[in-house]
């Protein structure tokens, strides 16, 4: 293990390491801690300039209550779910298929198609913006969740295919050959042999895509507007204009908007990190 395990060091080193950890963490999360502290303060603290002292009262319920009951925030959150979940399902489904095709079969153009997906996944959004917006408008899907979902599925298929294909490549190929010798149809091999083996990849990818899509902002403001279809990343700006300069409420709103992907991460940590670091180890 590198660096040298701390338990092999002196007692003093161990103690100072243990003491340093929480300090470092606090420094690292300082901006976030600040926002969390803001979100439980009363308005009066801000008018009195008491930004960092002891809060004059604990207003957790009042502030977060306002976010949930006196703003469009719940609508935006719901929109985010209605955009994110179908995208996850769609992108994972499509890329499982493409990944299977590219990972198992040898045919001309295999690598070319694979590289097309990879390259497409890296392009700047702006080169797609004008035509995609145009396409969405002319399909009557502007300012609908469906318009966003369709685009997200298409774009995420790039990354997901990369992921799935590499995962399938690492599966024991003998299993598939054995199945073929048995005369099992190809689609049944996909369904009954490959898919069960891919469960960890499916989980990892689902968690990752959930976070990516939940956090999307650019496409949300290009393809939607207003509380009918906008997800929470875009909605938070209008929330902030409703409570402008009221930092305690804006802070609470931001924290609420950030919770679902954070919760997803802590619940599915193993899958999340497995997905993110795929390829970091060879």
């Amino acid at each position: 293990m590198f660096p040298t395990p701390i338990e092999k060091r002196s007692r003093g080193a161990q103690i100072s390491y243990q003491a340093l950890l929480p300090v470092a963490l606090l420094m690292w999360l300082l901006p976030l801690v600040a926002v969390a502290l803001f979100s439980i303060r009363p308005l009066a603290d801000f008018t009195n300039g008491n930004y960092w002292g002891v809060p004059s009262s604990f207003e957790f319920f009042t502030n977060y209550g306002k976010v949930f009951f006196e703003s469009d925030m719940p609508r935006y959150m719901l929109n985010s779910f209605l955009i994110t979940v179908p995208t996850v399902v769609g992108a994972v489904a499509l890329s499982t298929m493409t990944g299977f095709a590219l990972g198992i079969y040898r045919f001309r153009g295999n690598l070319l198609i694979f590289f097309m997906f990879i390259a497409g996944n890296f392009v700047p959004f702006q080169i797609l913006m004008v035509p995609v917006r145009d396409l969405t408008v002319s399909a009557g899907l502007y300012d609908t969740k469906m318009g966003l979902v369709l685009f997200h599925i298409a774009f995420q298929t790039g990354f997901c295919t990369l992921f799935m294909r590499n995962f399938i490549r690492a599966l024991p190929f003998e299993l598939i050959e054995a199945a073929r010798v048995e005369g099992i149809a190809e689609w049944r091999i996909f369904w009954f042999v490959v898919l069960p083996l891919m469960k960890p990849a499916l989980a990892a990818l689902a968690v990752l895509i959930f976070t990516f899509i939940w956090n999307d902002y650019f496409w949300a403001i290009v393809l939607t507007q207003g509380p009918d279809a906008q997800p929470v990343t875009a909605g938070i700006t209008s929330f902030n204009s409703q409570f402008v300069a009221q930092y305690h409420l804006m802070s609470a709103g931001s924290i609420v908007a950030a919770i679902p992907p954070v919760a997803m991460f802590f619940l599915m940590q193993r899958h999340f990190i497995a997905g993110l670091t795929l390829g970091a180890v060879k």
Binding site: S95, M97, I104, Y105, F117, V132, G158
Partner: peptide, 19 residues
Amino acid sequence: PLLFLLPGVLFFLVYVISP
């Protein structure tokens, strides 16, 4: 493989490559 690729490639062509 063609059938398996078709939906994904189609989506990708329409929304990414052609734009």
